[in-house]
Design a protein around this nucleic acid. Structure first.
Length: 564
RNA sequence: UGGGGGAUCGUCUAGCGGUAGGACGCCAGCCUUUGGAGCUGGCUACCUAGGUUCGAUUCCUAGUCCCCCAGCCA
């Protein structure tokens, strides 16, 4: 269990005040109540961290994981499973408090009968269309349905027959009898039960009728002994209805609904509907596509649960509609990976370098530190030889002012190795493209050696040509354009997909130590960024996913003034 | 238009009558045998107008703007 968070927010204050006042006999019970109709994304992480975080701040506090599975048409066991995996992956534990609203169907049903018997609910036989007209509008009050005056016996009979499966979908609903003239539309006799002759992924075909969210949710909270029911802003004006149900549920203790603003992140698709659409239309490889802000996608991209939790702590909780910048998320994963990721050398776009004065068949092992910020990470040895590859971008035949890396006649340090000097450039006679560099090395400048302190203006990375491992590297940028508004009406996703959102580089070369890198492990390719070994990659070719978008690592270094 | 919610640096967020703070970002400089790391300094905010008060981001009044609600979705 991750350590509790300390940053204050208004919900924490409410819970603290209730706890201090001895409300709910000092219990703190929260819940995370997803509908199993999709995969969890970073937005859910905020709710998970909040709810589980709240509970763990109090002795005996618990957070339930409850599946709000009251709509058989959208739900699937695949989602139930993935949601549990993701909550665990994030680092939270619901103990034995795993619940399903569908387990309450029987209780919900008798509760509904009780409401009918007390005259608080009735069966309405209007069509959906008629009901809409009777409901009125935002500015006009609704009218009572002709069915509203049905007797208790009539209602009971009808409702029992609904349960028995006698009626077709859409022919009847059970409604709460509240107030058709209420300025709050949610109180204009909301639907409690609807007929759906659809198999439910858990209860199968035992029920032809299903309770609505507004009925099942408060009831579930109440019977589970939830004390603080934290939900998002759009349920704010459902609260009177929530209270209406809770009051009639008649439990000794009553839960309190508290609303907060859901998380939006710039340049990320956070709507379940759109994510589903992307997955089903095969615009992305699946729910775990690393371009997606799903927890599975982020994991595959190399995000750590710790970084996501830290992010969630830092964005705060409020009631304002907010859009958090992607850079903030990226900041926390960088901060985390900076501490834990081992540094390795890799070359994404190779340029061959021959060290002319190095022994023809010679090679040697050089010692490299795994993490300069963490001595306990130890060292590894990397092979050096006469033929190497360096990053293509680290050489310029005609360097502009301010470029301090390799160029004809220039010296540069090879990280962990020697200072080399470029003495020759081979070009393709046709295209004029540089194909090979000839360099000499200065044996005295070996890292740790006698002249190792000699200053050169840049240090570049490299891999030994004969030893290097070929790999595939996937570079990811945020999935969608920043100005994403609504789903395009023509469903033309290509217009919305950022063409640079996924770039595959094959023929990349990484140092041989990565041969045994385990899936999911994270590295910093020096100066190229943080990468994660794709957990889903095939074994024949190592695949690395870039964790965060890149800034120009050389900009600052190259910009510095030549000192000598 | 009825109801509900909300407005503080570019972005999140703190403040609860007493000099508006933090984080991200950005800018400048330093450092570096990786840097996107590290160090130093800097940047910009209380929606508007009245009122109460010695003093208002905070309390009151009136506006303005934004979001949500007219599913038998959640």
């Amino acid at each position: 269990m991750p350590e509790g968070t300390s940053a204050s927010n208004f919900i924490r204050e409410i819970v603290a005040a209730d706890h201090a006042a001895g409300k709910h006999e000092g219990r703190v019970v929260t819940r995370f109540p997803p509908e199993p109709n999709g995969y969890l994304h970073i937005g859910h992480a905020k709710s998970i961290c909040l709810n589980f975080g709240l509970a763990t701040e109090y002795a005996g506090g618990v957070c339930h994981l409850r599946f709000d599975d009251t709509n058989p048409t959208t739900e699937d066991p695949e989602y139930v499973e993935s949601i549990q995996e993701d909550v665990r992956w994030l680092g939270f534990d619901w103990g034995n408090h795993l619940y399903f609203a569908s387990d309450y169907f029987e209780q919900l049903y008798s509760f509904a009968e009780r409401l009918i018997k007390t005259g608080s609910a009735y069966v309405d036989s209007l069509t959906a269309d008629e009901m809409r007209h009777y409901r009125g509008t935002l500015t006009e009050p609704g009218k009572n349905s002709p069915c509203r005056t049905r007797t208790v016996d009539e209602n009971l009979d009808l409702f029992r027959r609904m349960r028995a499966g006698e009626f077709a979908d859409g022919t009847h609903v059970l409604r709460a009898k509240i107030d058709m003239a209420s300025p709050n539309i949610n109180l204009r006799d909301p639907v409690l039960y609807r007929i759906r002759h659809t198999a439910h992924y858990r209860s199968g075909r035992t029920w032809p009728i299903y309770p609505s969210y507004d009925f099942a949710h408060p009831f579930s909270d109440a019977i589970e002994g939830v004390t603080h029911s934290v939900c998002t802003l759009e349920f704010d004006d459902h609260r009177p209805l929530y209270d209406w149900v809770v009051e009639r549920a008649g439990t000794a203790d009553r839960p309190q609904q508290i609303e907060f603003a859901r998380l939006n992140i710039s340049q990320a698709v956070m709507s379940k509907r759109k994510l589903l659409e992307l997955v089903e239309s095969k615009q992305v490889a699946g729910w775990d596509d690393p371009r997606l802000p799903t927890l599975k996608g982020l994991r595959r991209r190399g995000y750590t649960p710790e970084a996501i939790r830290t992010f969630c702590e830092h964005i705060g909780v409020s009631k304002r509609d907010a859009v958090v910048e992607m850079q903030l998320l990226e900041h926390f994963i960088r901060e985390d990976l900076n501490k834990r990721a081992a540094r390795v050398m890799a070359v994404l776009k190779p340029l061959k370098v021959v060290i002319d004065n190095y022994p023809e068949q010679g090679s040697e092992e050089l010692e490299a530190v795994n993490n300069p910020e963490d001595a306990s990470a130890g060292t590894r040895s990397i092979p050096f030889s006469r033929t190497l590859f360096i990053e293509r971008e680290d050489f310029l035949e005609d360097p502009p002012k301010g470029f301090f890396r390799l160029a004809p006649g220039r010296e540069v340090r090879l990280r962990y190795a020697y200072i080399i000097k470029c003495v020759g450039v081979t070009k393709d006679p046709q295209s004029g493209e540089v194909t090979e560099l000839h360099c000499t090395y200065d044996p005295q400048t070996k890292s740790g050696g006698p002249d190792a302190r000699r200053k050169v203006k840049a240090t570049i990375h490299w891999v030994s040509a004969v030893h290097a491992l070929e790999a595939e590297v996937r570079l990811y940028n945020p999935l969608l354009k920043a100005d994403l508004a609504d789903m395009p009406s023509d469903q033309d996703w290509t217009a919305y997909l950022n063409p640079q959102s996924l770039e595959r580089l094959t023929g990349c070369l990484v140092e041989p130590s990565l041969k045994s890198a385990s899936p999911g492990s994270r590295f910093q390719f020096e100066r190229l960024g943080y990468f994660c070994v794709d957990p889903e990659a095939t074994p024949d070719l190592p695949v690395f996913n870039r964790t965060v978008s890149l800034k120009d690592a050389w900009a600052r270094l190259d910009k510095r003034q030549p000192s000598n």
